[in-house]
Each structure stands twice: as structure tokens, then as C-alpha cells.
């Protein structure tokens, strides 16, 4: 499974990356968390407000920090 964090690397993006890692660990899922800071790549997902969370190519949230339990739910959906 691939989890992408979209954002230029501000405070909230860092936090989201941490939360995603924790969520992946807690669901026992072998997920790779990748930070996407390149604007070109980021824009292809169509979001304007960062940070964005993409799991297996699907945008799950953007413009806010979802909770770890929400991320866990999305990981389960994509398993």
C-alpha cells in the first residue's frame, strides 16, 4: 500500500505524515509513506488546500488534519 502526503512541507504536512505512519503501524499494514512536495505532481490530484492525504492513488482528505482513527479507517478500506 502506498500513502502519499501532498504539501510543500509545512508544519501540518509533517504532522500528517507522522499520523499516517502511526495509523499504518497500528493497523499492522505494510504501507510506505511518501511525501510529495513537487508542485506538478501535487496538482495532478486536483487539490488546492494542503495537506492532502492520498491512499493507493485516491484522495482521502485535504486542507485539514484528519485524526489517526480516520486514517486507520481509510487504510482498512483500501486493504
Amino acid at each position: 500500500m502506498e500513502i502519499k502526503i501532498l504539501g510543500p512541507g509545512c508544519r501540518n504536512c509533517e504532522k500528517l505524515a507522522e499520523e499516517a505512519k502511526r495509523a499504518a503501524k497500528e493497523t499492522g499494514c505494510a504501507a510506505e509513506v511518501v511525501k510529495v512536495t513537487d508542485m506538478k505532481q501535487m496538482m495532478t490530484y486536483g487539490i488546492l488546500s494542503t495537506p492532502g492525504l492520498v491512499i493507493n492513488g485516491k484522495v482521502k482528505s485535504y486542507g485539514r488534519l484528519p485524526s489517526v482513527s480516520e486514517i486507520k479507517k481509510w487504510i482498512e478500506e483500501e486493504k
Binding site: 504539501g7 510543500p8 509545512c10 508544519r11 501540518n12 508542485m39 501535487m42 488546492l48 488546500s49 494542503t50
Partner: peptide, 8 residues
């Protein structure tokens, strides 16, 4: 937030 200024 200002970190969204560029994508916006």
C-alpha cells in the same frame, strides 16, 4: 494558510 498560497 500561507502554505497553500502556491497551489491556490
Amino acid at each position: 494558510c500561507s502554505c497553500s498560497a502556491v497551489p491556490v
